[in-house]
């Protein structure tokens, strides 16, 4: 019973030349909500696929709900619920038919199926639409139905691969309220992936994953505290000259992030007056300055050297992602 819900040691997966996941270790305690945060192509989905027995690890091992993902596939499968990154619903069946098929595949005792279907559909506010074809559902409703389906057989561990991608902010926050209430009220462990920083804040702990490696793993608060710096961004007409000026005059290593000169300092508010006092008229004039408290973006930046959006912009997966979002 004290065994962690998920424990992973040296887990790796390569597809030919590509090392999608290169040796990761972590543990997730029972009842915890654990987030995997990383840019496109970081290896998040690959990790989930290995944990849910759909992909065989190249090396390393993992246990989920107390069972080995390679040797005890079936037991793992019986104990997990899954929401994949791309929808896996049958559009030509009604919501209820989708759920019933799932219940049959998972061999749920017959007499529990109907009440349990009602429970999950009510919880995710789908009860009124239970007889509609899934093809007529909006993206948010489909996502909710998938979560309902993942919960139907009362799994011990629920995997959510980017549960809110492509949804509007309102739907995102409502899905998050379901997820957090799940973690609180039921003894269920949640493993999720996201590349929205604000969503990672909902997790008990997060791991930042970049190019197949876990860069850092801690609670969101501890991570933010570890950065300990405010983020300052300066707009001028000449970014190159500005970076050079910051280096000479203040000894600060600034870099470009999201198209703006960006750097971290311990006390942002006190730094700004000093900046203007000492800014040489020969330097390009400052158009605007912004100061922000450390966020997970800064955590990401300080550990990986780029912001998550920049990491994604450089990735060819971006196109795939956009296509996916538009097709929703």
């Amino acid at each position: 019973m004290d065994e962690p819900a998920i424990s992973v040691t040296g887990l790796a997966k390569s597809y030919g030349e590509i090392e999608a996941v290169c040796g990761i270790d972590f543990e997730v305690a029972r009842g915890e909500t654990f987030g995997f945060l990383g840019p496109n192509g970081a290896g998040k989905s690959t990790t989930i696929n290995m944990l849910c027995t759909l992909a065989r690890p190249t090396s390393g091992s993992a246990r989920v709900a107390g069972f080995d993902v390679v040797a005890e596939r079936d037991r793992v499968r019986r104990n997990i619920g899954l929401v994949f990154q791309d929808t896996t619903l049958d559009n030509y069946l009604t919501a209820e038919q989708n759920l019933r098929l799932h219940a049959e595949l998972y061999g749920m005792p017959r007499e529990t199926i109907a009440p349990r279907m009602k429970t999950v559909q009510e919880m995710l506010q789908l009860w009124e639409r239970r007889d509609s074809l899934v093809g007529t559902f909006s993206g948010g409703m489909k996502r909710r139905l998938e979560i309902a389906r993942g919960l139907l057989h009362s799994p011990r561990v629920l995997f959510l691969d980017e549960p809110t991608i492509g949804l509007d902010p309102q739907t995102r926050s409502s899905i998050w309220s379901y997820i957090s209430s799940l973690g609180r009220e039921q003894d269920i462990t949640i493993f999720l992936t996201t590349h929205y920083m604000d969503e990672a804040e909902y997790c008990d702990r997060i791991a930042i994953i970049d190019r197949g490696k876990i860069v850092v793993l801690d609670t969101p608060e501890a991570l933010k505290a570890s950065v300990g710096k405010d983020r300052v961004q300066i707009h001028t007409d000449d970014d190159e000259a500005t970076i050079a000026a910051l280096r000479e005059r203040f000894g600060i290593e600034a870099r470009m992030a999201e198209g703006v000169v960006t750097f971290g300092v311990a006390e942002g508010e006190q730094f700004v007056p000093r900046l203007f006092d000492e800014w040489d008229p020969a330097h390009p004039p400052i158009r605007s300055v912004s100061v922000a408290r450390p966020s997970l973006d800064d955590v990401f930046m300080s550990y990986t050297g780029s912001t998550i959006r920049d990491a994604e912009a450089g990735s060819t997966d971006m196109m795939r992602n956009m296509a996916r979002m538009m097709s929703r």
């Binding site: 709900a65 019986r78 104990n79 998972y106 061999g107 529990t112 057989h153 009362s154 799994p155």
Partner: peptide
């Protein structure tokens, strides 16, 4: 949790 899914038969 988990009791709903019986073993393979």
């Amino acid at each position: 949790p988990g009791l709903h899914v019986p073993s393979r038969s």
